[in-house]
């Protein structure tokens, strides 16, 4: 295919990605070093009231917004270097907490709190998603052929549901004396409030994510199981391998590329955890990195959006993405090189 033809085919897509992904990325990078704010001037005014012999004069200074001819506040943008990063990371409080070896002090700082949750969330859900997905795939693979379609249909529901709604639907089961709260109280015979503690909410959020993503892992693994070489399995049987050994030495190695694929997709998605915070309304207890950026972007009471703080926290979030992507990119690069030779 000639370059010109290739460019016409790919052009529109590249243009969109350039305008709406690459350019905003550059803009965010720039914004994180600059602060745009209204100009305030200090006006010193002397007011005098008539008094006996001398006037009584008071000098007071007022801070006032500068307006242009149209009455719109003038805004200036200035370069502030790493100041926004420092204020997002709250380095003073961070070092104070580190010096005291105080985990609880560290966990009241928004950014570090969000980082802690995002990492825990990503790393805890990963093995669970892979494990549960694999278990369902193995179980369905051994089930009768006639019911497999229905099982796949039901399994797809948690995957397809709007994430915010999915989180809400689980939350509603626990709200107040909701059905599952009532059930748990009956089982362990004590009063509980699943939505009243940080750790119980976090548990629900982990559960929700595994519930939401396990179907994806299941479908991918199930498709992979269809291509397991039966001869290999049979020769393993002849060699005396039991079920666990066959799983360990034949099936899992066969599925390994898929396991890597699902893990990478899951790492990317779990690191962006956000909808759970909205659905479970956990912002008072637990927040994530992406939620932090979202919160900076939401207008506060005065209608201002903390754009440069949002940009700084977004750039910091990106660091994690880069770390997750490096192994993936290296693998793709190696495959590409192998394909060329």
């Amino acid at each position: 295919m000639k370059f010109r033809v290739f460019a016409t085919f790919v052009g529109p897509s590249l243009l969109l990605m350039f305008i709406f992904i690459a350019a905003p990325l550059a803009a965010v990078f720039w914004q994180s070093f600059h602060v745009t704010q209204p100009v305030y001037t200090t006006v010193v005014a002397e007011t005098c009231t008539p008094g006996f012999i001398n006037q009584i004069c008071t000098t007071e200074s007022r801070i006032q917004l500068e307006l242009d001819e149209d009455g719109i506040p003038i805004r200036t943008t200035e370069f502030v270097g790493l100041q926004t990063y420092r204020s997002v990371l709250e380095l003073d409080r961070f070092w104070a907490a580190v010096k005291d070896f105080s985990w609880s002090k560290l966990m009241v700082i928004d950014f570090w709190k969000a980082l802690r949750f995002t990492l825990t969330f990503t790393l805890v859900t990963l093995p669970l998603v892979i494990g549960v997905g694999l278990l369902i795939a193995l179980a369905v693979n051994s089930a009768a052929k006639t019911v497999r379609g229905q099982i796949i249909f039901v399994s797809l529901l948690p995957f397809i549901i709007t994430p915010v709604i999915g989180a809400l639907s689980i939350r509603w089961l626990f709200v107040g004396d909701g059905i599952l709260t009532a059930f748990l109280e009956w089982v362990i015979e004590r009063d509980i409030a699943m939505l009243g503690h940080a750790w119980t909410i976090e548990l629900l959020m982990l559960f929700y994510r595994v519930w939401h993503v396990a179907p994806f892992a299941f479908v991918v693994f199930y498709a992979g199981l269809q291509t397991v070489n039966n001869d290999t399995v049979e020769s393993a049987v002849i060699d005396g391998a039991n079920r666990i050994e066959r799983l360990r030495y034949v099936v899992i190695p066969h599925l390994m590329p898929l396991i890597v694929f699902v893990s990478l997709i899951h790492l990317m998605d779990a690191y962006r955890v956000f909808e759970e915070i909205v659905g479970f309304r956990s912002q008072g207890y637990v927040i994530s990195l992406q939620w932090l950026t979202y919160d900076f972007l939401t207008p506060d009471e005065t209608g201002n959006r903390a754009v440069s703080s949002a940009s700084a926290s977004a750039m910091l979030t990106m660091v994690g993405i880069v770390i997750i992507l490096v192994p993936l990119l290296r693998k793709t690069w190696r495959d590409h090189r192998a394909g060329l030779n």
Binding site: M17, V28, Q290, Y294, R305, A314, L329
Partner: peptide
């Protein structure tokens, strides 16, 4: 071509971006 390969790689990186990062770029 290897240009096509690089486009796909960049697309893969873009797929991993958190959406809030991009929205922070759009809003202002």
């Amino acid at each position: 071509s290897s240009l096509a390969f690089w486009i796909l790689i960049v697309a893969l990186v873009f797929r991993a971006l958190p959406h809030s990062v991009l929205v922070a770029g759009y809003l202002p």
